[in-house]
Amino acid sequence: MPSSRWLNADKSPFQLTFVNQVKRCAEMSRKLRFFKDQISKAGLLGSIRPVSQPDIELEELEFQLGEHEHELIEMNSNSERLRQSYNELLEFKMVLQKGF
């Protein structure tokens, strides 16, 4: 299989860097869609108008999105475990109530 260097032999280093930046932006876009879906599932309304903030560097935005995604995934996992524990305890409570 030919190496990617050969496949991109006609591309300048700038074009290759640009491709990587587009991939990074696509990944950040995926994370933003994930956040939007989670907000919708929670029944929360998003901001009606965008909040004006100073410009942020791509690297900082990428880092913040990654951190928030990790935290949200962890929260979802914890929430699922809590729901399962609650259901088990509710079942035990019903068994105890029926037994007495």
Rank of each mutant, 00 (worst) to 15 (best):
M1K: 10
P2S: 08
P2L: 07
P2T: 10
S3W: 06
S3H: 11
S4G: 09
S4E: 13
R5K: 05
R5T: 10
W6F: 13
L7V: 07
L7F: 12
N8V: 12
N8K: 08
A9M: 11
A9G: 12
D10T: 11
D10M: 13
S12A: 13
P13H: 07
P13F: 09
P13I: 02
P13Y: 10
F14P: 10
Q15I: 09
Q15V: 09
Q15A: 14
L16C: 15
L16N: 12
T17A: 15
F18S: 13
F18L: 12
V19Y: 15
N20Y: 15
N20G: 13
V22Q: 14
V22C: 15
K23W: 14
R24F: 08
A26S: 14
A26W: 05
A26E: 14
A26K: 07
E27W: 03
M28Y: 03
M28F: 01
S29W: 08
R30N: 14
K31H: 06
R33F: 07
F34H: 02
F34E: 04
F35R: 01
K36N: 12
K36A: 12
D37A: 03
Q38A: 03
I39P: 00
S40G: 01
S40Y: 04
S40W: 04
K41G: 05
K41N: 08
K41H: 05
K41Y: 07
L44K: 02
L44F: 04
L45T: 05
S47D: 12
S47Y: 07
I48V: 12
R49H: 04
P50G: 04
P50E: 04
P50R: 01
V51M: 03
V51F: 02
V51D: 13
V51R: 00
S52M: 07
S52Y: 02
P54M: 06
P54Q: 09
I56F: 04
L58C: 06
E59W: 05
E59T: 04
E60P: 07
L61W: 02
L61S: 00
L65E: 03
G66N: 09
G66H: 04
E67F: 06
H70A: 15
H70T: 08
H70Y: 10
E71H: 01
E71K: 02
L72G: 01
E74A: 01
N76S: 07
N76C: 03
N76E: 00
N76Y: 00
S77M: 09
S77T: 03
S77Q: 10
S79N: 10
E80G: 01
E80I: 02
E80C: 01
R81I: 00
R81S: 06
R81G: 04
R81Q: 03
L82D: 08
L82M: 08
L82P: 03
L82V: 05
R83D: 11
R83E: 08
S85Y: 05
Y86E: 15
Y86P: 08
N87R: 05
N87E: 15
E88N: 07
E88Y: 05
L89I: 04
L89N: 06
L90V: 10
E91Y: 04
F92I: 00
F92R: 02
M94H: 13
V95D: 14
L96F: 10
Q97Y: 05
K98Y: 08
K98L: 05
K98S: 09
G99N: 13
F100Y: 09
F100A: 08
